[in-house]
Design a protein around this nucleic acid. Structure first.
Lengths: 225, 225
DNA sequence: GACACACTGTGACTGGCGTCACTTCGGCGC
DNA sequence: GCGCCGAAGTGACGCCAGTCACAGTGTGTC
């Protein structure tokens, strides 16, 4: 089943079955329990990872110990590419948000694929471009939007990736605490909590343990911009 | 002389003279005067540009018309890669900060180089990785640092790229108005002005027209983090 | 069942910074 | 030299959101 997820991953797009099989075979497997750390900001390391199951968070810590999440990644998404092409220590800490499994590839092995297979290079370029565009969007949001707006946007983003339509609305099991959600939008836990409570009181969503039910996506979208 | 600048550009790193010559020959030239717009957010377009002379700014505009600068780019730096690998409209507006010249390459032409020359793909991957890391740093700064800290950081960044050591300190001819500097750090012009005035009153720098003289880089560095 | 501990919910207070409203400065055209 | 206009400098004021300080709530462990 892991190989099915891998076939969907952007890194594998454009590869035929045989090549995908070979690439997959050269990857190592690993497993993490909720809260466990895969590697930390500043560590050495140049492996590329693909999440096959569960969710991880990429975070950075400021000098005075506060934390900020760059992204929440789920099945099929990759991370660790930065240390591959811009050599240096890891730029973020990766922690499991749920129990999860992933597969990884060493710098050297990836290099062989890159040189022989232009489509792998293309896939990576595309992936980095998407990430860069997203990072720029985050910057714009931090500059232009207030906290409720950023919370709304984060919920919509999570719903697109982890949501499931039900009769009442979109059920989003994000597996994040409000503290983590706050770190993701760059705000304090209290402020995020108040924004969520406000949305709930307006009937736009219902709060549940580590998940939300989005009931009025249009209003949330309007609030997000 | 343009070709000299090009040889220094990351895109050309790893190419031998002959290949660099051929790549350069397939590029178009263009020229812009201060304040002129090359293309706007939302425009169609898939050319990759390299600045050969002068400076440009990449900016985005919010729904209510406020502006935010993603980067100031000088000779040797490239832009427009996003639309190449993540097809879609341009994600930022590019405006000349000074009179400037640049060369550009079409998507299709670049494609040929990518497939035949793994080193070009490598160079681009590296470039995107650097940009992505920087974008993540900007996000962290917006979350963790106050406006004076971000101003200090921006000045240090500009000094690294456009600074010239003199007997009194580092002369940085950034060519930006305080309004533009404010958009670059995501703050209001007034607040940036007050931060600069404060730094000047402490003797850390001296303000000049569209340039600054950095006199105490260490203190600025300490203030920046 | 009882306790511990992590997470959530909410109010009071405060400060950084955006907005507004000026004044001052400097370069450029006539 | 004079007026104009964009840029730079500066104070008053208000609000968003961070911090602090609790009070609930739920969940896992013994």
């Amino acid at each position: 089943m892991d190989t099915e997820v891998l076939r969907e991953a952007p890194l594998f797009s454009g590869l035929d079955d045989e090549a995908a099989q070979a690439l997959s075979a050269s990857m190592d497997h690993s497993r993490l329990g909720r809260g466990e750390v895969l590697f930390r900001e500043g560590d050495e390391g140049d492996r590329l990872y693909v999440v096959t199951n569960g969710k991880v968070k990429l975070g950075r810590t400021s000098a005075d110990g506060r934390e900020n999440l760059l992204a929440i990644l789920g099945p099929g998404q990759m991370f660790g590419e930065l240390s591959l092409f811009d050599p240096g220590p890891r730029s973020a800490t990766v922690t499991a948000v749920t129990d999860c499994t992933m597969q990884s590839l060493s710098h050297d092995d990836l290099g062989k694929w890159l040189d022989g297979r232009p489509e792998v290079a293309r896939a990576l370029l595309e992936q980095l471009a998407v990430r860069l565009r997203k990072a720029n969007d985050v910057v714009a949001d931090l500059v232009f939007s207030d906290v409720p707006g950023r919370v709304a946007k984060a919920l919509l983003d999570l719903s697109g990736r982890f949501g499931r339509a039900t009769s009442e609305g979109i059920q989003v099991n994000h597996d994040l605490t409000q503290e983590e959600l706050a770190q993701l939008v760059g705000a304090s836990r209290e402020t995020v909590n108040k924004a969520l409570a406000d949305f709930a009181s307006r009937g736009w969503l219902r709060l549940e343990a580590r998940s939300v039910l989005l009931m009025d996506v249009d209003r949330l979208k309007r609030r997000a911009r």
